[in-house]
Design a protein around this nucleic acid. Sequence first.
RNA 1: GCCCUUAUAGCUUAACGGAUAAAGCAACGGUCUUCGGAACCGUUGAUGGGGGUUCGAUUCCCUCUAAGGGCACCA
Length: 563
Amino acid sequence: MIKEKIRKKIELIIKKLINKKIDLDIQFPNNSNFGDYSTAIALKLTKIIKKNPLEIAQEIVKNFDKENDVFEKIEIIKPGFINFWLSKSYLANQIIFFAENNFNFPKYYLGKNKKIMIEFAHPNTHKLFHIGHLRNISIGESLVRIFESLDNKVIRANYQGDVGLHIAKCLYSVKNSINQIKNLKTLQEKIEFIGKMYSEGTKAYEENEKSKQEIIEINKQIYNQDKKIINLWKKTRKWSLDYFNKIYKRVYSYFNRFYFESEMAKRAIEISNQALKKNILEKSEKAIIFNGKKYNLDTRVFINSLGYPTYEGKELALAEKEFSEFGNLDKNIHIVTPEQTSFFKVTFKVEELINAKIKGKQYHLAYEWVNLKTGKMSSRQGNIIEANWLIDKIKEKIIKNFNCDEKTAEILAVASAKYSFLKNSPQTIINFDIDESIGINGNSAPYLIYTYVRCQSVLKKSNIKFTNKILDINNLENFELNLLRKIYQFSEIVLKSAENYSPNFIANYLYELASDYNLFYQKYPIIKTEEKTKKRRILITLAVANIIKKGLELLGIKTVEKM
RNA sequence: GCCCUUAUAGCUUAACGGAUAAAGCAACGGUCUUCGGAACCGUUGAUGGGGGUUCGAUUCCCUCUAAGGGCACCA
């Protein structure tokens, strides 16, 4: 990585100047007039070295070994920026790698075992898989692929809630409508049925004291795997899981390990009691709690006064399994909404008090909600947007607007939905509007895929056989040079996405790359030009196509060859 | 009451303490005898208010306003 190279060289120079280590920022400037890499280190050093920043910059540049071939020039600009320009020949060589589908991804590990777990999706059974889950699974799937591309072993985990009051509410209503079950034919009908049962159960719970008591009783029965409810629970639970599996398949995800809340209860109680003996947890009003005051954290209940484990208690059992089933993990990334921040701070603390080895390895990636412009989604209000429904809707729109076949429309619809979530940072709340939010023009997946298809078409028509791939850098147009410089950045953008747990850097990079290519395509002939130029432009086209395909793959998005 | 987020153009969003705040949608105007027009170009338009730190703040700190979330037996 050239970035690291520059960093090390400057660090050495600075060490000689002031004998101190300094935080160096080296970046891709957002304006291409400022070179391929840029640093403001001279400006920062003015405090330490009492000199004019321009003088400091000159001192650094004077001692910087340019290695002839790699750097073309190094400029010092106005207040004290140092801008590095890569040479055309160096860029040309790099582009050949991309044209050969060799992306030179750096290795980036979150620890010495090179093994991480990403825990994502986690829908609750007996409920719909909605667009919030779709955002979650899109982010999770993408991060898995990004970390794998940087040479990590990634374990895909999914923690699904299959016990709890929401299920008791649902089953309460199911019991009252038990004779309807035999009329349910398709999986879709079954899912709609339990959805309806859930909202009826919720209503009964709130409006009728007797129903409420019954639901609480059912909840206990589920925990105890009571014969009175177990078969109905198993049956309806299976419907949900089948439905989830269909969705996972539809969006190209799979998991190495499904965890279920129902498998945690017993162990949760044991671990909590052990922690109680060690004074990590304490007893209060018949419950077992963690007193967070000492650590400036919230106080939370792990075992309730009836002796049942809460979500917190079960999390201890989950962590134990996760950290023991796959060898030594370096990091466990939980992709969960921010309202759980307090919950995770507390459970992480308790877990590391129980087992010091876990310390620092748990990470809560707080991704935000998808809200509706009309308000927050809530199953009680019945304004949930289901993931499948959304994808179907986009699919219809694509078929209507572009007149393409069903198979292509399916790929484009899934791509559009995922991309529209992934192009945003995970930490921003998305205010969702069905017509505006899922783009099929502009900065959208179909635009990227279209660009890819266009490249493929050019490549097919060009009909060039390369004996050896050499990119001729004579008479380079500025548009081409800009493209070379953009192409060059790909591997480092992937690294940046990993470092920040943010697939959106890749998404936005791909969009810029595709825009640059389309502009170039518009302005210059690729095939209808003299031989050397043609070969060069074909190589650029090949590199762009490969990067779009690979980049989308890292986002968990499929491409098509024709559309 | 205490704690945590968030506030960027009409709307939805980008921006790693840096250089002229970047796009899409919407609106308006243009490019077409094309290597795929699902494209390309142009115009209008923004950092909630007030302080501070810094050579430099959308980014860090304080404060006000507004919105969201969390703080013992829900998940």
